[in-house]
């Protein structure tokens, strides 16, 4: 049975099989936090600065398109239109 768990990449979520301990695919951060929806389809990877923190988020294309508008504390540094499972973070 897959459950949603905190991913090791801070601020992100992924599916997890409790019986086997196996990791499933990541899910869109915003779909989960806003609606508890397990959206695993076609995720993008976004590197951003948020309140001085450098973070990397996995988000769906719909939420990616809306990021960075109206929030001066959020600066998008770069993005990939694909899932980067182990992204290197900028220092």
């Amino acid at each position: 049975m897959d459950v949603v768990r905190q991913a090791h990449l801070p601020g992100n979520y992924e599916l997890y099989d409790e019986e086997s301990g196996g990791l499933g695919p990541p899910i869109c951060k915003f779909c989960w936090e806003k609606d508890h929806a397990r959206n695993t389809s076609s995720l993008d990877t976004v590197w951003l600065s948020l309140d001085g923190w450098n973070v990397v988020w996995w988000v769906c294309k719909g939420h990616h398109a809306g990021m960075g508008t109206g929030d001066p504390s959020m600066i998008i540094l770069k993005s990939e239109t694909s899932l980067v499972r182990n992204p290197m973070i900028g220092k």
């Binding site: 905190q6 923190w53 973070v55």
Partner: peptide, 17 residues
Amino acid sequence: RFKGMHGKAVRRTALGT
């Protein structure tokens, strides 16, 4: 767990956790 978390004070951080 995260930088900026001191002691047992758990707050919602910029990391979204």
